[in-house]
Design a protein around this nucleic acid. Structure first.
Length: 677
DNA sequence: TGGGGTCCT
DNA sequence: AGGACCC
């Protein structure tokens, strides 16, 4: 995978912004069969997120075993509970049996979790200039921090690595943190002490490897961000640092609660493939249960004898087939994999994609999520008492519809900041001072209703292989009255039921007036169309409108914001070489060394258990387009880096502008002035 | 055995 | 409209 002399960083960029699609294509080609070592990706996973949200609202629960329930299972539980034998996704009854004093909290309403997730996400989005952030579910975030890391690598001072300063913005030299560039923050994946290692620690010959230096920098960035998440927001997290999304995410789970892991290449060894080889294929993100079982069935046809080569039953995740098993299979190849997975409806590049994942290659980009979701759905299940009559169904539909309308208003509108004159505001019939004008950021074009019949009640199917019985759905255009902000949610919802959802329901269940045995109802709006004049919403569903402004915020533009050259031929090589010879690129002292003095959990406490203080703090603080290029073609490391000895954060005042700047930021700061033209 | 999401066909 | 994937 990794070649010793990669030197591929994409800082040299065309002068003009590129069209998003064009840029993506270039990216694909570049990553096609190449290393894909040219990015730096962070993955954060908030530890037992739902439980943490509850704990932050009720700090007294922090020390008690806590489970968060949805219907009859625990969506998650805190680590105290896990100590007592409680597991994620465990039935509530079983959990109580294992831990009688378990505190169980209902988590069926996702609003508090959604709010907390958005607050953390807003912080991360604004934290690193030029980074892209992508949310996965409510509790995971990817960041592409390539630009910031490349920039900071160019600024490393080989004479004072221990007192390095990481710039979070090229625009504001004071924004950042100090760190020790002679070591990684947190854990690294093949552990330096590892028995097999004959390299001296994590060190020696390796630091002339630019990938490794970037990962070292990224580990400190990840450590800093996680510390902020914990200290400022009360959420601990696990982090993974690597060169693409799948590896970052995978390696993040190596040291799970409240820690982080950097996956580093080791020269002359294929440590990344070894890391992957040991995983069950089902554990690789992107390889789901369907693909897993198809592969398993092909490699070891169900009729035949059990695998001989495997000594242990290994009662872990399903199938037991590892990445190594697949790759070592006779004549295994992308083509064979494609044939195995080929079936009607299969994804086109599917085989090749899986093949790449099995090798740790993942060219997918970190996608900046729009402020508006592309879909909003509300659902409820009725396992215990399936719906069979129209009055029941209508009652539930109206509950769901009310909640849907409320969510549309919460997630798809924003405060209207138009400079409306007081008289026109008053004419809307609301008190002047308290008027909450909202306007749509994006509006859905489609309304969809889905149902699902009860698996066991009337029909067949009890198979474990059946992942919840399949849904059926019907959709229609969303009536425009659904967008009327002047009426109460419940009123809009009732009309929605009568005029849209009921007809959809009849289309779903033609010919039967009752007795459907419905175990699930789902109401969904989709196909969001951004409102013209606002650049912040989801992907255009139809021909409606494309979000032009977002298409220009491509990776190229982000990199240009930082734009320090990463040419290994220049002074940076000196930097890294010198770095190597520095006393120790020591192994992490300890697995939990990141937050030294701190005793136990966040302590943010969040004051009283104030119920809701919500509403849109999410919008602000995103990384602005700070378009200025630090051209650091030369001059770098020697000039301006005297033998500064000051232990902690030495500062200087800039003669040009009077800003107080950390000494290690001074060089960058001066270039800032030089740039100004 | 939940209550959500995304993308592709 | 459905299926695959993710949490």
């Amino acid at each position: 995978m990794k070649s010793a002399v990669a030197a591929t960083v994409t800082t040299a960029l065309p002068a003009q912004p590129q069209h998003g699609a064009a840029r993506a294509k270039v990216g694909e080609e570049k990553n096609k069969e190449a290393d894909g070592d040219d990015r730096v990706i962070l993955h954060f996973d908030y530890d037992c997120f739902y439980a943490s949200v509850i704990e932050n609202a009720h700090p007294a629960l922090r020390t008690r075993p806590l489970g968060v329930r949805q219907k009859s299972i625990l969506a998650t539980c805190n680590y105290v509970a896990r100590t007592r034998g409680v597991r994620k996704l465990m039935p509530v009854a079983q959990a109580r049996a294992a831990c009688p004093d378990l505190v169980v909290v209902c988590g069926e309403d996702l609003a508090p979790f959604r709010d907390a997730s958005r607050r953390l996400w807003a912080f991360l989005r604004g934290a690193v200039a030029g980074a892209r952030t992508e949310r996965l579910g409510l509790d995971e975030v990817f960041l592409d921090v390539t630009a910031a890391v490349v920039y900071n690598r160019a600024l490393l001072n080989p004479n004072a690595l221990r007192d390095s300063f990481f710039h979070l913005s090229a625009e504001d030299p004071e924004r950042g943190f100090t760190f020790d560039a002679t070591r990684f923050a947190g854990c690294v994946h093949p552990p330096p002490d590892g028995q097999g290692e004959q390299h001296a620690g994590a060190g020696a010959a390796v630091l002339d490897d630019p990938v490794r230096v970037r990962l070292m920098l990224a580990s400190h960035l990840a450590g800093y961000l996680r510390r902020r998440l914990e200290e400022d927001f009360g959420y601990t997290s696990s982090g993974g640092i690597s060169t693409n999304k799948v590896l970052a995410k995978l390696v993040g789970s190596v040291n799970k609660p409240r820690n982080q892991t950097t996956l580093l290449p080791v020269q002359g060894e294929n440590t990344i493939q070894e890391f992957l080889d040991a995983h069950q294929i089902r554990e690789i993100p992107g390889i789901g249960s369907r693909t897993s079982s198809i592969i398993a069935d092909h490699l070891f046809p169900p009729g035949k004898a059990v695998r001989a080569g495997h000594q242990e039953p290994e009662q872990q995740t399903p199938s037991g087939i590892t990445v190594r098993d697949v790759l070592r299979y006779p004549d295994m190849s992308p083509a064979l994999l494609s044939r195995i997975l080929d079936r009607p409806g299969a994804e086109r590049g599917g085989g090749k994609k899986i093949w790449n994942l099995l090798h740790g290659r993942d060219a997918s980009e970190v996608k900046e999520a729009g402020v508006a979701p592309t879909q909003i759905s509300v659902e409820d299940t009725y396992m215990a008492r399936p719906l069979n009559t129209l009055p029941e169904a209508l009652r539930e539909l109206s509950v769901l519809a009310t909640s849907l309308v409320r969510r549309m208003r919460a997630d798809l509108t924003t405060a209207a900041e138009e400079l409306t004159d007081p008289s026109s505001a008053g004419s809307a019939g609301l008190p002047l001072g308290t008027q909450q004008k909202r306007r749509w950021l994006a509006y859905p074009k489609t309304l969809r209703l889905s149902t699902c019949a009860h698996p066991g009640k009337s029909g067949s199917v009890s198979s474990t292989s059946n992942p919840s019985f399949s849904r059926i759905s019907r959709s229609q255009p969303l009536p425009s009255f659904a967008l009327d902000l002047g009426r109460p949610c419940a009123e809009v919802a009732e009309r929605l039921v009568r005029e849209a959802l009921l007809p959809l329901f009849r289309r779903l269940h033609v010919g039967r007036a009752a007795g459907w045995n419905l175990a699930l109802l789902n109401v969904c709006v989709a196909n969001m169309v951004p409102v013209a004049g606002d650049g912040s919403s989801g992907s255009g569903g139809g021909a409606g409108g494309r979000d032009i402004s977002r298409m220009f915020r491509t990776q190229g533009e982000r990199l240009r914001e930082w734009s320090a050259w990463d040419d290994d031929a220049t002074t940076t090589t000196t930097t890294t070489t010198t770095m190597m010879s520095s006393p120790s690129l020591s192994p992490p002292r300890d697995r939990n060394d990141l937050f030294d003095g701190k005793a136990e959990g966040g302590a943010v406490a969040n004051g009283g258990s104030e119920e809701k203080n919500d509403v849109e703090d999410a919008g602000s603080a995103s990384a602005e387009t700070e378009l200025w290029a630090v051209d650091d073609g030369d001059s770098d490391s020697d000039v301006g880096w005297e033998d500064e000895d000051g232990d902690s954060v030495a500062q200087q005042r800039c003669a040009a502008c009077g800003h107080v700047v950390p000494t290690f930021a001074m060089s960058a700061h001066e270039r800032f002035h030089a740039m100004g033209d």
